[in-house]
Write a protein that binds this DNA or RNA. Structure first.
Lengths: 265, 265
DNA sequence: GAGTGGTCTAGACCACTGT
DNA sequence: CAGTGGTCTAGACCACTCC
C-alpha cells in the first residue's frame, strides 16, 4: 500500500489548502523547492501540481506563480424561470420584451456580450425522434444559441434546441432566426401555434470537457461541464421541445424548486 | 499557434472515438506505437493518454490494455420522489415500510449493499446557521448516510443531513440512529413533530474529486462528482432540513420536474 | 516470461512574467 | 535580465496481466 510520491505531495498540499494554511490566492512553493523538500525529481513534483490542477484546486503557471484557486461567483439558473416565462405568455408585448432568449443570460457579467443564434432545419436522428415519438428522419427545427465574450472569444453559455417542424408549421415567423431574441422566449413562441407547456423536465449530468471544449470555454483545468437536457411537455402530453444546455460548473449553480401538494385533510 | 504534440495525439484519438472509428470497448494502439507513429518520445505519447483519461474517454492500463471507455448505466434520481414520500406520510406503516432511507438507493445494483448511518449533535457552523436562520453555535442534529459496496468497500452514495435540534426535541426517537432506516423517510420523521414540508429546493453543482475522493468512490479518471444541496422548507416558511448529497457523475442522472400552472382563462 | 502501462529520474529547451 | 513553469526526451525500473 505504498503511494506514489506525486500523490503524497499532492495530498499534502491539498490538506494545507483544506485546513486553511494555504488560503485562496496564496502562492505555492516553487516546484524545484517542492522537489528539494521531498527529495524527488522536479518532474515528479510537477506531476503533483498537474494532479492538483486537474482537481480544480490551483491555478496560475506560465510565468505567473502557482496559486490556490479562488472560487468563482456562481450564476444561478433557477427553474422558477419556467413558470415566470409562462406567466408572461399572456401579457402584452411591453412586458415580455425585456425577458430575452430563455436560458442564456450569463448572470455574472455586466459588460456587453455577443449573442449568436443559428436556425436550421435538419432530419431527426433516431435519438431525437424517439424522444419526440416521431419517425426518424422527420424534419425538426434546430436552434443553436451561444453567448460569447467579445474580448476573449470564449463561450459563456450555449444551448441547442429542437422542435418538430410539424408542430410549428402554421407560423413561419418561428422558423426565422432574424426574429431573435423573441420577446418572452420559447414558451411565447409556442403559444403562437396554440401550444401550452404543462411541465418541464430537466435532466442533469456532468462530464469533463475535451481539450477543444476547454479552449472554447476558456476553462481552467479540473472544471467539469454541467449538461442540462430539458424536455418541454404540453398539455396534451406531447414532447414539444428538447433543449440541451451546457454550463461551466465552476461558475454555475442549477436550482430546482419542487412544490409539494398539501396534506389532504 | 502551435499546439503541443500531446494535444495533437489526444485530439486525433478523441476524433476517432467521436467518429466511431474507435467504438467503446475497442483497444487503443500501444503507447510505443503511438510514439513511433507521431515520431515523439513515449513520455509524450503517455501524456496524451493521461489527458484522455482525465477527459473520461479511456480506461484500462495496469497490465490491461487501454480501451475506449464504455458508458455506465445511469441511476436516475428523480425529484418526483419528494412528492411520493410526502404522499406516504399519512399512510399506514405497512405502506411506508418499503420506502427506505430517502435518497440513498443505488438504483443500479441488485446485490446487497452495506448501509451505514451515523447520528450526532453538533454546533451549527456559521454557514449552516445562516441557512436555518438560527444563531451560530446552536445545536443541530447531523445524520450521515452512506452505502458502500461490501466487496470493494467503495462508496456508492453518501449524504449528510442537518436538522436544528430545537425543531425535533419533542420526539426523542428522531435523535436515535438505531431507528434507521425509518419507514417513510425524513418527511415522515418530521411529521411526527408536526412539521409539513411545503417545498424542496435542490441546488446542483459539480466538482472534480480529490485523490482521496477518487479512492473512496473507486472512480476512474475524468469522472466529476455531482453535489446536490437540498433545502426543505415547511408550510410556515422555515428551513427545517439541509441535506448535502454526492453522486458520481458517470453513474447518475438527476431529474427534476417543474409542473406549470395552467393559463388563466 | 513477454508485453503492457505506471512511476521516476536528469536534463535540455522554450515561453512567459516580472524587474 | 533572472526566474518561473511547460514541453519534451531517453532511459531505468516496477507492477500487472495474460499466455
Amino acid at each position: 500500500m505504498k503511494r506514489p510520491i506525486q500523490l503524497l505531495i499532492a495530498d499534502d498540499i491539498r490538506t494545507q489548502i483544506e485546513s486553511g494554511a494555504l488560503p485562496p490566492g496564496a502562492a505555492l512553493p516553487a516546484i524545484h523547492e517542492l522537489a528539494e523538500r521531498w527529495s524527488c525529481s522536479v518532474g515528479s513534483a510537477r506531476t503533483a501540481i498537474t494532479l492538483l490542477r486537474e482537481q480544480g484546486l490551483i491555478s496560475g503557471g506560465r510565468g505567473k506563480p502557482l496559486m490556490v484557486r479562488t472560487q468563482h461567483r456562481r450564476a444561478i439558473r433557477d427553474s422558477a424561470r419556467h413558470q415566470l416565462e409562462k406567466d408572461l405568455v399572456r401579457r402584452p408585448l411591453e412586458e415580455r420584451a425585456p425577458v430575452g432568449t430563455s436560458e442564456l443570460e450569463t448572470g455574472t457579467s455586466i459588460h456587453s456580450v455577443k449573442f449568436d443564434c443559428t436556425y436550421d432545419v435538419i432530419r431527426a436522428t433516431t435519438n431525437i425522434a424517439d424522444r419526440f415519438k416521431i419517425p426518424a428522419g422527420a424534419k425538426v427545427l434546430r436552434r443553436m444559441y451561444q453567448t460569447t465574450d467579445p474580448d476573449t472569444g470564449s463561450w459563456l453559455a450555449r444551448s441547442v434546441s429542437h422542435i418538430p417542424v410539424e408542430l410549428i408549421r402554421s407560423n413561419p415567423d418561428l422558423m426565422d432566426a432574424s426574429n431573435e431574441p423573441w420577446p418572452g422566449g420559447t414558451q411565447h413562441q409556442l403559444s403562437t401555434v396554440g401550444i401550452e407547456i404543462a411541465r418541464i423536465v430537466d435532466e442533469v449530468t456532468a462530464q469533463m470537457p475535451t481539450t477543444v471544449d476547454r479552449q472554447r470555454w476558456d476553462l481552467e483545468g479540473g472544471v467539469p461541464l454541467l449538461r442540462n437536457l430539458r424536455t418541454s411537455i404540453d398539455t396534451a402530453g406531447r414532447v414539444v421541445e428538447l433543449s440541451d444546455a451546457t454550463y461551466p460548473a465552476d461558475r454555475t449553480l442549477l436550482r430546482f424548486t419542487t412544490p409539494l401538494q398539501p396534506w389532504s385533510q
